[in-house]
Design a protein around this nucleic acid. Sequence first.
DNA 1: TTCTAATTTGCAACGATTGCTAATTAGCAA
DNA 2: TTGCTAATTAGCAATCGTTGCAAATTAGAA
Lengths: 140, 140
Amino acid sequence: MRSPEELTTAFRAAGLKVTPQRQLLFTLMHNNSAHPTADSLYAVASKQMPGISLRTVYQTLTDLTEMGELRTIEVGAGAMRFDPNVSDHHHAVCDVCGAVQDVYVNQAPELRGLDGFAVADAHIVYRGRCASCSASVKRS
Amino acid sequence: MRSPEELTTAFRAAGLKVTPQRQLLFTLMHNNSAHPTADSLYAVASKQMPGISLRTVYQTLTDLTEMGELRTIEVGAGAMRFDPNVSDHHHAVCDVCGAVQDVYVNQAPELRGLDGFAVADAHIVYRGRCASCSASVKRS
DNA sequence: TTCTAATTTGCAACGATTGCTAATTAGCAA
DNA sequence: TTGCTAATTAGCAATCGTTGCAAATTAGAA
């Protein structure tokens, strides 16, 4: 996702308005590696701008996604997550704390069973324990 | 997932009862490669047993999943799907017709960015066009 | 400054799923 | 075969995440 300044220009160029709500969300998502849900982003945004609505957060995230500035990811159950990293990558989800981190694969694996299926896209979700949750395991 | 006969034994052994509803669902899921949702399975079941409730379908699918007889898979938006194939495999989802097929990978790819994450499980969702939807593309 | 289309907000509605409860029933034991 | 009781079913309400809608507000071009 581009910087808040570039997004301001891009939005205006697309005939979209740049409101204070949107500017705040631009800055909150820029370089955000937390893979937030709409709701968690709303919680953060509300602190800086009390009264902003969850509906607006959803709307702006949808706009950014349609412009290709965000990717949406679904990791098992729960809400949709938004990722400002739109490069080709995958995700690892910690089963303990729920944190999501980016993962890159070096080469695509060979497949069996494709049977004429034309692959356009692939997304891998890894599950396990993140480094900090692995470290905090008490001996049992 | 095991055969309806084996499941009957397994359910009783686990202190669970084998009702007509459950027997029907056992047979409908056995060797079912359609990756149905609870709702689509309910539609099929209702034809053979009018009056069966969606609640019971959910309950039985949950029971089977907890016993390790089914896997649940989520492919992008939409409802949860149930897969009687519990072997280690992945899925390809057709963007046109929504069909889901099983895919097997020969070897796990090398990863970057794991950063101490201990992987316990991986699931790949491929998206694209299935064979029949590729074949039925009209020239444009 | 004016005007208007875009935006925001709040709330209703939606789809998927689960919680709850009364009525029913599988299946063990006598 | 009959009784008993815990498990199950069905139906409905409630939940969660998300989207549709409409009235009031506002960005930003003219």
